[in-house]
Design a protein around this nucleic acid. Structure first.
Length: 490
RNA sequence: GGGCCGUUAGCUCAGUGGUAGAGCACCUGCCUUUUAAGCAGGGAGUCGCAGGUUCGAUUCCUGCACGGCUCACCA
């Protein structure tokens, strides 16, 4: 980080003068008697020119200073709330000149009577003030805010100070997660924590981050999913569990992907994927109602209604609708790719039939799924942890949820047949040999847990960052993650 | 990783083959109810980095770094 040259030098000079006068620029505390927001709430309807007799002690950051000779105004901000400080030479006497040593960005404690100026600005008539922390660097520009995305992401604190809508977004994010917890808790789900550092990764098709534990002398992975551990807890007898936490995938970065991202996964015993669709609808619509107060939202210019029930369409119908291709007719990779080409679809060659189906969905169907849509019944080939449909063993009882063109969730009736699960892992190995690099790895310990008996269970995973994007109308996942992954500057 | 675009003062941005500007911020002066305070004056830059072309490069070319968008993979 470069020095900011003369601006920083200037502040250092003021710091020295302050210290020379025996003023501690970083005192350990300042006892306030009120929050700025409380004073604003209490006195905002005061008439211009009125005085209150109230004399609170307040603290905040200086966000503006207007010096007018023997009178000075400054804006003091604490969180969202702001109040004006008014000081004049009559009131402060020889202390008045110390105001010269204050800068925008400094934290200040004040004491004085609350009043309203002739122009109607709620103010504190400073009887005294105390420097609480000197800022040595200037804040971003007050008028245009901070635009440079690199500074916004790397120094998010400046973004939060300069851009109010950014501050609001992260408040909303926090409320979404709180609402999610409240919903799940009210449904009897137990919040648990499972390992992030794992000897084996699984539960999704993705490349992991690898690390090494020195004392154990052992390779470890950062989890790519919570799934296999949460299912072990269902085996262990908890009927409903959930976890909200980070997963890590060693893949590309985009407006919809951050290498570490937040996921909510929940598992409910004696439920199937139809029950889970109901659960997902209720979860997301109730979060929207709780946080935004409504279920109609606008996302990137599209009007979306999150009120249940949501559209449910099979994967086959969705692809048929979106492309004209019937995946039930084209059962081999070659036939599917040939037909896609015949229809003029730009489909890159895929390693397997299942991957090609997945590609058709994400490429040609997903962008059109603006209203909440459950796409159900996926090929078993690409659903190695989901139970087969009784009526068609080539399909899995699985759905993905799309809203606003974003893939929002993934769920299935969990595969609890240990022998079929073993066979599926085997099948994944074969797909790996065909060139699919993101197949699931065999987890012997997980298989053993299934052999001890897992009840029929429905599971759901929601991409929390994407849900926040949807509810805050964010275009990029980086706008809902406080410190998104960036290359380290050299 | 590929393609396209960007990088100029602390911040927001102009601009040029002849060595750099504005607004905010900063400094000095005036100003005791201002509020994007005002008025007058002033300081501030390795023009992302490194090469090349040129009498001369911030400007043109090449490479690199970082960022954005996009394509490829995933939640």
């Amino acid at each position: 980080m470069a020095e900011t040259g003369s601006l920083r030098q200037e502040r250092l000079r003021k710091l020295e003068i302050l210290e020379g006068r025996g003023i501690e620029p970083y005192p350990s505390s300042f006892r306030t008697t009120a929050e700025i927001s409380e004073i604003v709430d209490r006195f905002s309807s005061l008439a211009p020119g009125a005085r209150t007799g109230a004399r609170p002690r307040l603290a905040g950051r200086i966000t503006a200073i207007r010096r007018m000779g023997r009178a000075t105004f400054l804006d003091l901000r604490q969180g969202e709330a702001k109040i004006q400080g008014y000081a004049n030479q009559d009131g402060l006497a020889e202390r008045y000149e110390l105001l010269e040593l204050l800068d925008i960005g400094d934290f200040l404690g004040v004491e004085g009577e609350v009043f309203k100026t002739q122009r109607g600005e709620l103010s504190v008539d400073l009887a005294s003030f105390t420097l609480l922390a000197k800022a040595l660097r200037p804040p971003p520009e007050k008028w245009h805010g901070l635009r440079d995305v690199e500074i916004r992401y790397r120094q998010r604190y400046l973004d939060l100070l300069a851009n109010e809508e950014v501050r609001r977004t992260f408040v909303t994010r926090s409320r979404i997660i709180t609402a999610m917890r409240a919903f799940l808790d009210s449904r009897g789900f137990l919040e648990v924590e499972t390992p992030i550092l794992q000897p084996l990764y699984g539960g999704a098709s993705a490349r992991p981050f690898e690390t090494y534990h020195h004392a154990l002398g052992q390779r470890m992975f950062l989890r790519i999913s919570d799934e296999l551990y949460l299912k072990r807890l269902i085996v262990g007898g908890y009927p409903r569990v959930y976890e909200i936490g980070k997963d890590f995938r060693n893949e590309g970065i985009s407006t919809e992907h951050n290498p570490e991202f937040t996921v909510m996964e929940c598992y409910q015993a004696f439920a199937d994927y139809h029950d889970i669709m109901d659960l997902a609808e209720e979860l997301i619509s109730s979060v929207a109602r709780g946080v935004l107060g409504r279920t109609e939202i606008a996302y990137q210019g599209e009007e979306i209604d999150l009120a249940p029930p949501w559209r449910r369409v099979t994967l086959r119908e969705a692809i048929l609708e979106g492309t004209g291709l019937d995946i039930r007719e084209e059962r081999t990779k070659e036939a599917l790719e040939r037909e896609a080409r015949r229809l003029g679809l730009r489909l890159e060659p895929q390693p397997t039939w299942g991957k090609a189906v997945d590609k058709l969905l994400s490429e040609f169907v997903q962008p059109k799924l603006i209203q909440p849509t459950f796409v159900l019944d996926y090929p078993v080939e690409i659903s190695p942890l989901a139970k087969r449909k009784a009526s068609d063993p080539s399909l899995a009882e699985r759905f993905e949820l799309f809203i606003g063109g974003l893939e929002m969730g993934n769920a299935f009736s969990e595969l609890n047949d240990p022998l079929d699960q073993a066979a599926r892992f085997q099948q994944q190995e074969e797909q790996r040999r065909l060139g699919d690099e993101e197949t699931q790895v065999l987890d012997e310990d997980f298989l053993i847990s299934l052999e001890h008996g897992m009840p029929p269970t429905g599971g759901l995973g929601i991409g929390v960052d994407r849900l926040v994007m949807l509810l805050t109308d964010a275009r990029s996942i980086r706008d809902v993650i406080l410190f998104p992954t960036l290359r380290a500057p050299r």
